[in-house]
Design a protein around this nucleic acid. Structure first.
Length: 105
DNA sequence: TAGCTGACGCAAA
DNA sequence: ATTTGCGCCAGCT
């Protein structure tokens, strides 16, 4: 099932609360890398764990498709595959070349 | 407590 | 451009 908001979730670890809070604020049309999310959440070396947290995200207000790899490649997308993830990003205005994100400056 | 598993990151080959 | 290897870490068994 899919809860409306991560903020209402009652049994999330502190790590995931912070991570989801960061992802929830990523503006439409922009992206952050897994590592950047980890750093902003206060766990600078937990990029990998952020990936796991995204893979298990169940909240509508956590736009996990806006989190991509540091080298610009899309990264995974449990619901629909990286192909759909790229499509959603393009639809939001994110610049891509093939399946690679073009980071602004 | 000890292992194992990934929507990762990065350097090296 | 790819692939491999290794370090990292939270979460689960």
């Amino acid at each position: 099932m899919r809860t409306a908001s991560y903020a209402q979730a009652m049994s999330l670890s502190m790590f995931r609360r912070r991570v989801y809070a960061v992802v929830a604020r990523i503006p439409k049309g922009t992206v952050l890398t897994y590592g950047a999310v980890a750093a902003r959440a206060g766990f600078p070396r937990a990029a990998r764990a952020v990936g796991t947290a995204m893979a298990e995200n169940r909240y509508r207000d956590v736009p996990c498709h806006r989190v991509v790899r540091a080298d610009g490649t899309i990264g995974g997308y449990t619901l629909g595959g990286s192909r759909l993830k790229a499509a959603r990003l393009r639809r939001e205005g994110v610049r891509l070349t093939g399946d690679r994100v073009i980071f602004p400056e």
